[in-house]
């Protein structure tokens, strides 16, 4: 082959040498993973709210209040991990609230109604979550049904099953281990936050630096190309729904611990908050580009807004208005950025 420098100017040669740079910088993978995700918007929004609250309500930064924000953010953060994977793979799961509820009911039933040991009951809950995800994934990939329709329908099916079994009743009085997962603290840090952050770190490493994460981005970004390169697009798409189901089941167990109860009609608003956190965190709604760190920021931002509205003395209903406004502003910033990039 003709050497690259044969017909180049000295400027090109210098550039070629620069591009072939060595040293630690050359070996560092992109921090956020295979795709560039814009995090400036959620970071800027968080900074603006922090400054505003520092002036308007200084006890916003009290440890107790920050702990409350962390507790609110942790469940969205946790569910956001699964949803980030699903959306990055060019899917959407509208059934997470129902999966969370059904797996919680299964866990509670195994423990309370069937008298199974705690760890077996947890396994039952996680298995039900995984099976719900598998159900969604198989319908979407094998029958080629739209994700939106499948998961919207399965939301009704899963929630219906939970209601049928529970019959409108409530399971309560769970073992201390479970309530510790939902309410406990380690050195003042809420357990749900510890669990969510641990999973965020693990998921980020897989998502950003592992072969699986790289292929997942490709499956969402260009499924035709991924298939041509020998990647099992169907396998990955089913896999993300199963993963989402397991994550929702983990969320269900944590929520059970937090409430010390399982209510089959609960977790209705969790879907919108989770999708909002993922999108505000920079994950592209139509797949191919996503970030777990972005989702963490998105979840934190939503929890912060909700808390700030209460701290400022507004009626609780204003939380929705404020959260919606911030989501719109963030998405508008992304759209503006994308439009500029296309131009």
């Amino acid at each position: 082959m003709t050497p690259a420098t044969d017909n180049m100017s000295s400027a090109d040669e210098r550039r070629a040498a620069l591009l072939g740079e060595t040293g630690w910088r050359a070996t560092m993978p992109p921090l956020l993973g295979p795709t560039q995700v814009p995090l400036a918007a959620p970071i800027a929004m968080l900074a603006i709210i922090a400054v505003g609250m520092a002036l308007a309500a200084p006890n916003f930064f009290a440890v107790g209040n920050l702990r409350a924000i962390a507790l609110d953010a942790s469940l969205i953060m946790l569910l956001g991990i699964g949803m980030t994977a699903v959306i990055t793979a060019r899917g959407i799961d509208l059934s997470i609230g129902a999966i969370l509820t059904l797996s919680s009911v299964a866990f509670a039933a195994a423990l309370k109604d069937f008298g199974l040991p705690l760890w077996v009951s947890i396994f039952v809950g996680l298995t039900v979550g995984a099976l719900c995800g598998l159900f969604n994934g198989l319908l979407i990939t094998r029958l080629r049904m739209p994700d939106f329709i499948v998961t919207l329908s399965s939301e009704l099916v899963f929630r219906g099953l939970a209601l049928v079994y529970a019959g409108g009743g409530v399971f309560f009085g769970f073992p201390e281990v479970i309530t510790f997962l939902g309410r406990g603290r380690v050195m003042g840090v809420p357990m749900p936050l510890i669990i969510a952050l641990t999973l965020v770190v693990v998921a980020h490493c897989i998502f950003a630096y592992h072969r699986v994460g790289m292929r997942l981005h490709a499956v969402g970004g260009n499924p035709t190309a991924a298939k041509r390169l020998g990647i099992s697009v169907t396998g990955y798409r089913v896999g993300v729904y199963v993963f989402m189901g397991i994550i929702a089941a983990i969320g269900g167990i944590i929520l059970t611990g937090r409430l010390d109860a399982v209510v089959a009609s609960g977790a209705v608003t969790i879907l919108l908050n989770t999708v909002a956190a993922v999108i505000v965190g920079g994950t592209h709604l139509f797949g191919g580009r996503g970030s777990i760190i972005g989702t963490l920021l998105g979840a934190w931002l939503l929890a912060t807004i909700t808390n700030a509205v209460v701290m400022l003395g507004f009626e609780a209903f204003w939380q929705h208005v404020a959260a919606g406004a911030v989501i719109l502003i963030t998405i508008a910033l992304y759209s503006r950025r994308n439009t500029r990039a296309e131009e």
Partner: peptide
């Protein structure tokens, strides 16, 4: 068959 959001490095080695 390129993934536009991914870098050239990732595209070249995708699948291998």
């Amino acid at each position: 068959a390129l993934c536009d959001d991914m870098s050239v490095v990732h595209n070249i080695f995708l699948g291998r």
